[in-house]
Structures are given as structure tokens and as C-alpha cells.
Design a protein around this nucleic acid. Structure first.
Lengths: 335, 335
DNA sequence: CTGAAAGCGCTTACAG
DNA sequence: CTGAAAGCGCTTACAG
């Protein structure tokens, strides 16, 4: 915002070429020797040249979420929006996920729009099948990014995640206190970091391989996972999301099993309406406001040129105990 | 996209001034006679002059919603996003509402960003305490807009709303078929069009003034409205949103009343998790996909220069009957 | 308050 | 493949 606008002539001077050549490189015109092009590109980078006067655009920050269907994502977006607004920034939200446009497409768009920074919530960095290339473009464009619930070493930025290991540990401790030993885990696709981390934490607690089932993060996914886990005699189900938990409860109900009488179910996220479900859901709540504040603070610091700490900050989740968990049935120790 | 970029010189010719003067007007520099300034502004308007090369920005459409906390808004955004994506457009979402930045602020931002069009969902046009000025700016910038669940004559655009009158009529008919006569309406602030329209439709059906209560669109609002309506002997409650309905059910429960045994409750919106509440909520569903498709089609048509039909299109909602409504208690005809 | 003219930053035939 | 120079579109002292 303060630096005087970098002129083409200066880039030319540094790269030791004419302004004409710099112009050609900038506009990706043919007819420039590769070596020359590289020298000019280096100079552009070094001087942080921007075609458009950077300060011209409004103070604008983009938040990306995979979809709006999952209340957690919208809660994060809402909370981040409030924090940004309080700090005088405008927020635009992009749904860059499986449906609709891919995140990389949006990143290019946001670079073109001249946003000052990006907050990626549960972005493609949490997806093992995705490469982080587009974030390198962002870096190259000098736009800082911070990441919520997604992490990848080698990408520049700050990282803020809710601890999946703690979430699993707390839930298991709660269920064990009720006497449950046959505890099952139902998560979505393992390609997503939170699912994988929960599965790993679960195994580390000594549970056998077949007690962890991976389906999808939907009601139907929860239902299918619950079916398998109930078939194999589990009395308590730990779910990767609230909607999966609702699916699990539905499956229990369709088998004539009572929740929490026969089966205990724990959700994840504490979505807005969980107190009103039947039974009210015991679930794990991510500390959304604290995470949002940390992410916004880090982003604004980065925009102001402060160096980012690349360590992932793990936040402590809370177990919200409601009606879907209870003591294990005494006369029910299956083989 | 096709028109050759309008040059400053041409504007100067039309306004019969020098390019210097046009430049001064464009940059809001002082020292231009008011009459001259007006003439130049008119020429700029007439020729549709844009500082930035218009076609440079990606195909981008903005969707505005008041907040992300209400699932209806996110469902509309998600559905509109899918439709836009299928048609090759990128969507950015803005939460322009009571919290965070005001809609007018966002409109200016979007004009600056060079979006091709705007979809306003439940926007400030539905709020009687808001003026539609900023939409005139949008018009002036040549950016078409379409409106979902908000309407105001005099604003250029297309309008797509779910019929509140039908929603009320269907709900009342359903409750009357169960023998209810003491039916109450609980809606949010009457300054918002959907609340006002429901109240009006309700009165038109012959219900007395005191059977319609206006609070806020929240669980607490629903609870407070239900308290008043139950005090005055109503046996069925029609709510302006699902969360209000959940508040009403909570209030009934706290009085030891059974839903639907003692009190019937109807919601509005059919939010994602309503099948899982206790009891599963009878509610009215807006035809979101159809409305989204119509809005997107109209916007794309307008972007391509087709004239917009300013009549409000009213969509037919569906009554989704679940477990929160039932026959009126026979021995319960209060004074 | 306004225009003619110089200037700025970038792009683009043209020449080699 | 590259630069000197002309050109383009806009802005800005300068003069009146």
C-alpha cells in the first residue's frame, strides 16, 4: 500500500534489457529467448512488480470453503466474516469444492481480482488427491494465505486446525466411562485429513482395524457405516460428522435399537440444530471463534509483511454431552 | 465482451470537451463547472465507458445473502452456485447483512470488481427500512441484477419469490383439516417482506389481530411468540421459519405440552435437518432448485442484453407433512 | 473553468 | 531475439 508503484523501466534496468522486452514477457508474447525471459521473470519477482496498481482495489479478502451444505463450513465462514468486517475488511466467499468449480480455478480468479489475502477452510490442502500447485501461484503473486483445518508442509502460510486426536480421545474416554468397550469409528473418505487423522488416533488407542469404517460424510454414509459396526457387535459409535451421527441413529432406530439405551452415538462439529435432534446429540465442538480469530489475525499480519510461522496450531475441541450417549447395557457382552 | 473498448477521446467528442476535462471528471478532480461535469457524465453513461477493459475479468457473478446462519440462504447460494457453474460462470458469495458490511457497501465493491451480474437473495429490497439506492448504482454501471425473495417496484431486474400467501393457506388448510380453529402465527420482524406477507395472508384468512405475533427469526423469538400464543389458548402454531418452530416446540415442552398431542407446530423452509428433530417437523418447502434455475436463467439473459420482465414470479411451495402436526385435542375448546 | 501540449508508462511495428 | 523509436490512452502542469 505504501511502496511507490514499481515501474517497468526499473525492471528493465535490473534485468538489463529494454522495456520492450519486459513488456513482451509480461504479456506472454512469443519471440523472447528462454534465458532472457527467465532473467526478466526473476527481476519481476524480485521487485514484486504488479501490472495493476495494487492499492487500487478495496480491502478485500477471500474465504474458500468446499461447500455450503455442511454447517461447519458456513459457521467458519460466518465467524471469519465477522472478524474481518470488524477489522475493516470485506469478505468474499468462494465455494471451491467437488461440486462446482475446483479450488485451483478460484485461486486464479482471486489473483486476477487482486484480493489481499485468502483464508482456505478445509481446502484442497486437506485432500491427499489434490496437489498444492495453485497455492504456489498465490505465493508467486505475493498474496498471503492461511489455512483452517488443512495442512501441508512446504506450502507457505499459517495453519490452524482443531485437534482430531483430542476429539477422538475425549469421545473414547467419555464412552469408556460409560462402560463401553466395543467402540466403533465411522468417518468419511480417508483421503481427507480430518478423517485420516481420526482413524489414526483411533488405532493408536488400541482399537482393531475392523472397528474403523470409512464411508462418506453424509447421512447415508453414517447409516451404512453404522450398519457394519452394529453387525459386528459394537455398542458405541463415534462419527466423523453430525450428519453421519444422524445417519447412525437412524440405522439404530430402523433395527429397533434405542439410542442411548442400546447404542451410544457421538457426533462431530456441534452443528446449530443438534440440540433439537432426537435424541439431542452428544458431539465434539471445534472452537470456531478462537480459530477464526487466530486465522484472521495471522492473515492480516502476513498482509502487513510479517513473516508467517509455518507450524500447525492445534486447537482444543470441547465434548458437548447431551442425550445420545449412556451406560452400556449390562447384559449385552457379545462374542 | 464484443464492443471495442470505448476511448476517452470519443467521450470527449460526444460531450464536446477536451480529453483533459473528461479525465478530470473521471478522476473526480475539482475545478470542473457543474454543467460541464454533468454533460461529461451523461456522455460517459450513454457510451457505457469503463475505465478498465471490461472483458478482462473472468466470467464472474456475485450472489448476496444476508447471513450464512440461516440454512435457507446457504441452500439457495449452493443451488445457484451449481447452476452457474454448469453454465460456465464463477460465483462469489457475499454476506451482506445486519452483521458485517451492509449490502450497499458490497454493491460498490462488486461494481469495482467488474462482476457481470448479481443475484440478491433475501436482500435489502425485502427490508422496508432500507432504500434501494445502491441498486440504482448497479443499473448505472450496466450490471444486471435478479432478486430472490425480495421485491420492489421501480428497481430494474427480475424477481423470483416463493408465495407466502400460498404457504400460509396450505398450512392453515392442513391444520383445519385436523380440527384446529385456534391457530396462531409466529413470524419475525414485520419490516421483512416475507414476514409481512405471511401476516397479511393470515389476516385475510379471517384470523384476529391478536393471533399473529411478530418477534424475531430465532429460536428465542419462536419461543417468546409461542408463549404468548399458548397463553391465549391457541392449539396450533404456524411459524415463519424452522428455527422459530423449534423454539415453539421447546416452549410447548417446557409447559409439559406434547407436540403434536396438545399443540401442532408448522415450520417454514424445510431446513436440512428437520427430519431429525424431535418430533420431525411439518414444514413448508420453497422450490429452491426451480427458483435458482429461473434466477440464473434470467440473469444470464439480462447479461446478454435481453430485456428483463419486471413482474414478480411467484413460486408454489410444498407442505411437507411430518410428525409435529396432528388432530386437535377433543376436550380442549378454551373460551 | 478549460484546452493545447508535454509527459508517463506501456505496447508494438520496424529494423537489424 | 532484441532494442530504438513511434504510438496509444490517459493525466497533469501550464497558460489564459
Amino acid at each position: 500500500m505504501i511502496a511507490p508503484r514499481m515501474r517497468l523501466a526499473e525492471v528493465a534496468r535490473v534485468a538489463d534489457v529494454s522495456t520492450a522486452t519486459v513488456s513482451r514477457v509480461l504479456n506472454e508474447k512469443p519471440g523472447v529467448a528462454e534465458a532472457t525471459r527467465a532473467r526478466v521473470t526473476a527481476a519481476l519477482q524480485a521487485l514484486g512488480y504488479h501490472q495493476e496498481p495494487v492499492a487500487e482495489s478495496e480491502p478485500l479478502i477471500a474465504v474458500t470453503v468446499p461447500e455450503l451444505g455442511n454447517p461447519t463450513f458456513t459457521v467458519f465462514a460466518e465467524e471469519i466474516g465477522i472478524q474481518l468486517s470488524a477489522a475493516g475488511w470485506n469478505m468474499i466467499l468462494c465455494t471451491a469444492g467437488p461440486r462446482g468449480a475446483h479450488e485451483s480455478q478460484y485461486i486464479e480468479l482471486l489473483i486476477g481480482l487482486g484480493v489481499a489475502g485468502v483464508v482456505s477452510v478445509s481446502g484442497s490442502l486437506a485432500d491427499r488427491l489434490s496437489t498444492p500447485e495453485h497455492y504456489h501461484h498465490l505465493e508467486a503473486a505475493g498474496i498471503p494465505a492461511v489455512f483452517v483445518n488443512c495442512y501441508q508442509p512446504g506450502v507457505r502460510g499459517s495453519f490452524f486446525s482443531s485437534s482430531d486426536a483430542e476429539a477422538v480421545a475425549m469421545s473414547v474416554a467419555h464412552l469408556r466411562a460409560f462402560g463401553h468397550t466395543r467402540i466403533g469409528l465411522a468417518v468419511g473418505q480417508l483421503r481427507y485429513m480430518p478423517a485420516e487423522r481420526k482413524a489414526e488416533a483411533f488405532r493408536a488407542l488400541g482399537f482393531p482395524e475392523e472397528s474403523a469404517v470409512s464411508t462418506t460424510f453424509t447421512v447415508e454414509g453414517g447409516q451404512a457405516a453404522a450398519a457394519r459396526l452394529l453387525d459386528s457387535g459394537h455398542t458405541a459409535l463415534l462419527c466423523g460428522s453430525d450428519v453421519m451421527a444422524l445417519g447412525a441413529i437412524r440405522e439404530a432406530g430402523s433395527r429397533g435399537l434405542d439410542v442411548p439405551g442400546d447404542v451410544s452415538v457421538v457426533g462431530y462439529d456441534d452443528s446449530a440444530l443438534m440440540p433439537f435432534t432426537s435424541p439431542a446429540l452428544t458431539t465434539v465442538r471445534q472452537p470456531v471463534p478462537a480459530m477464526a480469530r487466530a486465522a484472521v489475525d495471522a492473515l492480516i499480519a502476513a498482509i502487513n509483511g510479517l513473516p508467517a510461522d509455518p507450524t500447525e496450531l492445534l486447537f482444543h475441541p470441547d465434548l458437548i454431552i447431551r442425550q445420545s450417549t449412556g451406560p452400556v447395557r449390562p447384559a449385552d457382552p457379545p462374542a
